[in-house]
Design a binder for these strands. Structure first.
Lengths: 257, 257
DNA sequence: CGTAATTTTGACTCCGCTCAATTGGCGTGG
DNA sequence: CCACGCCAATTGAGCGGAGTCAAAATTACG
């Protein structure tokens, strides 16, 4: 439970680990991770940092198209995206898919499983990705001992609720063009935060997945992209998007045409 | 759902008072509260139950139309609805209101405030109501000492996330009539759980509030009620609704007309 | 290089919105 | 007690935004 023991490397947990992943375990070092400020509390004492690092006892690679977990799978861990891009979605009785979110580096996945002991949604990698595996029992144990971590965990859960409020606002009271503009600006901000260009990025999801997330049909999303381009707001080439006039894009949200 | 009036000092009081005094005065007794199973973990040892009861160190009455808290207020506590009915909502830049949920006895409010230290939404009583005030610092402290409570807190937060996934599904991929049917059946189930009639209830919200929650205009909600009545699914008189054919109402969701 | 998947675009439809008038419920005050 | 005013709810007419269906164009991928 404390130091990284060689025993673990020899007897990999079948569920979480395969050979290449075991090797990566030894590189776990949250203190020097450049996504640290996104998943961890600030100003952790060094000895606490040590304990926190032990929560992440594995990394896991997920290739494009593969599931990190599926709805109904037994809930054991939450995941921090280390690199890559995921979608989460739920499916209703009719087989209709609703994409509930997109997740990138430093964001946490799987917290919907605590309540029932099973993941409520599926998490699918939209590009080759890597995550830190944090067994939830361990998270809870250490949260009991390090109040800053406990507080951080609660904050993360709470922020997920707030994020979903934003989606409800988007789905419940915005017009199609506002939805897309909101999404693009949000994505842009998240890229900036991670040191990427604000106005030039590659969409990892299909028009259909984006449409599902925004409560629109894929044709509508496509038409909106075309119209935004005509109007000089964007430059769109398939999945590559350049924001050309972010001011006017923001103005879309502010109600002024 | 009518208030069981507790012995209560007549003078209105500030929310936060010295804990022991208020606790005694209100005879807080979670162990015998009939909503216990909704807010508390099961099978708590008696001595733990004692500690948990001390979390609730005040009750607060909120009259119809009043706010339990407003978006932007400093986050100090979460609330368990003891009796009554609330809506939560957020307002965007344009002043558009989005109702994010309706809450009744045994359900928890205010968890969206942990992340930022301020409540992200407003909670308005839709009828005279009463809540248990649980200072969050105290919740966290005791959660560190009683794993069952910690686990329960996480489960409650997680379930709120799952609930919102359901709303996203509703808003993102259901037609108007499916949204209303889903809402009514959900409300019915929650009433049943609390010992009320499944098929006969009083809506506490206006058509406009319901429309906001469902992503519809109030006129559309009104028309749907009329149509459901014509079709023999419901009996509607203003805010009073009787479900007449719950099978067919459920069939609406299952896609078969 | 061929096949499937994704995206774009067009034509047409329809569900839910807008605007508007009316009805109904309810509390307040004459 | 009724009259009044206010707000909520209902209903109608007409419109328009997003959906549906269909086909073509482009790209991804084995």
């Amino acid at each position: 439970m404390h130091a990284v023991t060689p025993t673990r490397a020899k007897a990999p947990r079948a569920i979480f680990l395969s050979a290449p992943e075991v090797a990566r375990r030894f590189e776990v070092n949250c203190a020097s991770c450049n996504l640290r400020e996104l998943c961890l509390p600030q100003g952790l004492a060094p000895e606490d940092m040590q304990r926190v690092e032990n929560i992440v006892y594995a990394r896991r690679r997920v290739r494009r198209g593969e599931a990190l977990f599926n709805a109904g799978d037994e809930f054991k861990a939450i995941y921090a995206v280390r690199c890559g891009f995921f979608k989460t979605s739920v499916v209703d009785g009719e087989g209709r898919e609703q994409v509930t979110g997109f997740f990138m580096g430093g964001e946490l996945l799987g917290m919907d499983g605590v309540g029932s002991g099973r993941y409520h949604c599926s998490a699918i990698a939209l590009e080759d990705s890597e995550v830190c595996v944090m067994p939830f029992a361990l998270v809870e144990e250490i949260a009991r001992e390090i109040p800053a971590l406990q507080r951080n965990l609660h904050a993360v859960l709470s922020r997920e609720i707030v994020r979903e409020h934003g989606v409800m606002m988007l789905l419940g009271s915005m017009r199609a063009e506002e939805r897309l503009a909101t999404f693009l600006l949000n994505l842009s901000r998240r890229f900036v935060r991670r040191g990427y260009a604000a106005n030039d990025f590659h969409l990892r999801m299909t028009r259909e997945e984006l449409g599902s997330y925004l409560g629109l049909k894929l044709e509508t999303v496509s038409r909106l992209f075309s119209r935004f381009q005509e109007e000089g707001l964007l430059e769109v080439n398939q999945k590559h998007v350049s924001i050309r006039d972010s001011a006017r894009l923001e103005a879309l949200l502010a109600g002024r045409a």
